[in-house]
Design a protein around this nucleic acid. Structure first.
Lengths: 225, 225
DNA sequence: CTCTTTTCGTTGGATATACAACCGATTTGT
DNA sequence: ACAAATCGGTTGTATATCCAACGAAAAGAG
């Protein structure tokens, strides 16, 4: 194991991918997972649209952006990647095509690459914790899956009101109570639901006036009827 | 292994989950995966919103619907499940909450349940193909993930035109050509993009008149500019 | 072949949304 | 304590979308 990698063991230890595995064990697994470490200057591309990906990628330090360019060259931002997060993992399956997005470093960053085949094929008994990593990987993809389904469900509603109802009632169900706190301010909620902020604000107030709900800042009280 | 299960071995063999595994091996793995088989009458609930799921579910025969009910009791359909498809796999992670959707049998159906823990924890050397199933499971979730991200990307556009451009240019990129065939008719495309069919039809024709593209039925020619 | 069904474009009116702009309240930084 | 920035509600207007309905063309059935 390279010295540079050793430096990031505390980071790896706290990732979802290595959850439940100690630094010692991670250190001894790295070669088994075919790990390599690369650094990127701000603005450099970590992954490029059109590439085939055969490694699972983990941001060890820095910050990165997922963006895409359409057929006509219009660019749009899809999300941000923070330290400890993995990405690209959904594109290592052999039947998956090339990458559809670019990943660009927003700051000077360090990135781990793990050979996907070696990650998902548990090796000999030497790696007692390898199967735990596989499980963690599956859980990580599952979690992304769940939040994608939820978001899709909200956004696919036709009207702003329906989107709000979908999102808020989902949260109420999840938090199992009628008064909920949401992790967004108005602008972020509007972005999340893909609507205009002011139009959403209008709709919220209309719903309040109709007695459907009450709110204050990021707290909402739903009335069940 | 129960006789009833044996009957479905040919079905299992052709699923993504057991891809690459022969009937023989599947048969000997079933107990190792904690498989159980249940039948449902048309209209019965296979999974219920609010339940905790600890099994991976596979439709062995019949047809099922994924639906959901919001806080106010409004029902909506999210998708259909066909023979050989797995579902619920994204909800077996321990940190995932309860199910948010119902799954209802559309016809008399037979359903396999596999103990998630036993699936993702490869057992002793007795199951040589177990790790292949784990890999298949990961690939299956990855695939769902990819299509969800794509759909979300299209739907989150504000206007019908942007949604169409997003979808069509994505397809063009994926099929690596400017003339593409899509697997939808107009109504289905409108449903997929969450817009009104007639409005979408209007927009398509407007784009054609502006020279952005040409189309005939489900074939589209994109002009890059 | 004829009849039926499906598909798709078109129209018009009611409604919802986006967009820009503004303001007061609250929060943040110094 | 003050200035600056952020946040959230409001308004007005142009535009886009939904919705229902219609008809022609294509596909499918008998």
């Amino acid at each position: 194991m390279r010295e540079a990698m050793k430096e990031f063991l505390p980071v790896l230890k706290n990732t979802k991918l290595f959850s439940g595995v100690g630094e010692e064990e991670i250190g001894s697994m790295l070669s088994c997972l075919g790990a390599r470490l690369r650094t990127y200057k701000k603005g450099e591309y970590v992954l490029r649209q059109g590439e085939r990906l055969e490694e699972i990628v983990l941001l060890a330090c820095g910050r990165a952006l997922i963006q895409k360019e359409d057929y006509w060259g219009n660019r749009s931002i899809l999300g941000e990647i923070g330290v400890g997060e993995i990405f690209g993992e959904a594109y290592v399956a052999p039947e998956s095509g090339a990458l559809l997005n670019d990943v660009v470093a927003l700051e000077d960053s360090a990135v781990f690459f793990f050979d996907a085949k070696r990650v998902i094929t548990t090796c000999s008994s030497a790696c007692r914790f390898h199967s735990m990593v596989v499980r963690n990987l599956f859980y990580a993809v599952s979690e992304k899956n769940r939040s994608l389904v939820q978001k899709l469900d909200h956004i696919s509603r036709r009207t702003t009101r329906e989107k709000l109802i979908s999102y808020l009632s989902e949260e109420a169900k999840r938090q199992n109570r009628a008064d909920i706190s949401i992790p967004f301010n108005r602008q972020q909620l509007a972005d999340y639901l893909s609507v205009d902020r002011s139009a959403m604000s209008n709709e919220l107030c209309r719903m309040r006036d109709e007695g459907l709900l009450k709110f204050e800042r990021n707290r909402f009280w739903l009335r069940a009827n």
